[in-house]
Design a protein around this nucleic acid. Structure first.
Lengths: 156, 156
DNA sequence: CAGCCTGAGTTGGGAAGGCCAACTTAGGCA
DNA sequence: TGCCTAAGTTGGCCTTCCCAACTCAGGCTG
């Protein structure tokens, strides 16, 4: 993800997010982190990812500010590092929720939703939606996607 | 993305979404599609992606139901195909908005936001948020991520 | 203090996917 | 007939990914 072509897109927020999250396994590592997984061996076992790739992914996620290395110490063990979500990492809840909602709706597995988002205090399900500044909910169709400063203009 | 390890995660909505969207360039192609780009040469020029890779990506996006091939005919040209978002593709607006919001907040470019989401009728900015069933807005911290049927349980 | 155990990686070799430049293809039109 | 154009295909190189086996560091056990 450090190719020249990608650098051309450096001004796009999507592309910049993908620099950290776009490589294989990155978002799945984050998903596991949200479930409370913190350790190398656990990520590895749960995902089945190759150890060298996991090392690389954890490294980019740490460098990208999504995860943070933190020393821990189990009884009768030496000190090791675990990986926990930073504030920026925790903010990816929205991104994952968007993927989950889309996948459940448009790529059903037949097993029902695998991840559920609920209100912590009531355990009632929650959904993602667009809101206006004053808190009105907006249907996605009523939302327009407009180019900002980073947009080069549509091809003639 | 058709590895055995990924199949193990077939029951997770995130992993299933990533089967279609997780390969390099896929989400950037979708981003361009939201801006109204439909043609091979335009995707290519705007993204700087290699033609063989673009062919492959368009193919998976069509197979995944995100894009739809549609014949068109320019004056003095033969009939060709263009690629337009399906309903499922349009539903990715939420996913892209989540990436944009996260990137703007946690990976600032210094150029300001590159994509802006606004209410179509008023041109006023909108944001993504978690809502309870009865329409109350919830801070992300108040939302818990719980395992659904597809979750194998945390490692002991 | 020798040897063992465990978690967190590293290393080496083969396969897949991505990059780039050059070429092909198919129909409309002069 | 031959040219033009958009949409690819092909071939060679390089990077990333996959997998299995190995290393490494420290705490504990005898």
């Amino acid at each position: 993800m450090t190719t020249t072509s990608r650098e051309i897109n450096a001004r796009c927020s999507v592309a910049r997010s993908l620099e950290v999250l776009g490589e294989k396994w990155a978002l799945l590592v984050v998903r596991e982190a949200f479930f409370g997984v913190t350790r190398f061996a656990d990520f590895r076992a749960r995902l089945g990812v190759a150890p060298d790739v996991l090392t690389a992914r954890l490294e980019t996620l740490v460098e990208g500010g999504v995860l943070e290395r933190r020393p821990y110490r189990d009884q009768g063990q030496r000190q090791r590092d675990e990986y926990v979500l930073t504030e920026a990492g925790a903010a990816l809840k929205t991104v994952l929720a968007a993927f989950v909602a889309w996948g459940d709706e448009h790529r059903p597995s037949g097993f029902g939703p695998s991840v559920v988002y609920v209100e912590e205090t009531t355990d009632k399900p929650v959904r993602l939606a667009f809101l206006t500044e004053d808190g009105r909910e907006l249907a996605p169709e009523a939302v327009a996607v407009l180019p900002g400063p980073g947009w080069a203009g549509p091809p003639a």
